[in-house]
């Protein structure tokens, strides 16, 4: 039984209950990935996906803060409020995606491309 308890890091990860901070780290990674996606993709749809990732990262945080399960002893979870926020974010993300897609399609109809770098008609 050279158990994992010998390995402090893995042991902690597997033994210990997760905390809100775990979720926050995941949310941060998703958020950063979304931002990076927005910053690097030239495809308008890629930018849109980046936005979805950013919103999703935010949602992870909301849900984590809302959870009574994750809250430590004496913690004060947001309860339903956080979940409702997450639900609203999802709904508005859907709306945003619809509009963004419509804009993209329009842009594609007018410019025959989805390269956002070519959407610079308003540059100074």
């Amino acid at each position: 039984m050279t158990s994992l308890s010998m390995n402090p890091v893995l042991g902690f990860l597997i033994d210990a209950p997760v905390s809100v901070a775990h979720y926050l780290v995941v949310g941060a990674i998703l958020f950063t990935a979304g931002v990076a996606c927005m910053a690097t993709k030239r495809n308008a749809l890629g930018v849109l996906m980046g936005i979805e990732l950013v919103l999703n990262g935010a949602n992870v945080n909301f849900v984590a803060f809302a959870s009574t399960y994750l809250a430590g002893e004496g913690g004060r979870p947001l309860g339903l409020d956080g979940q409702v926020f997450a639900v609203f974010v999802i709904l508005l993300a859907a709306a945003e995606a619809a509009v963004a897609l419509a804009i993209t399609l329009n842009f594609y109809n007018n410019h025959a491309t989805v390269d956002v770098d070519r959407a610079d008609d308003l540059k100074g």
Binding site: P17, A21, Y69, G72
Partner: peptide
């Protein structure tokens, strides 16, 4: 995210 101690508390596992 890690700077707040309350967030680092392990989950209470309340159902």
């Amino acid at each position: 995210g890690l700077s707040v101690p309350a967030w680092r508390q392990p989950a209470s596992m309340h159902a």
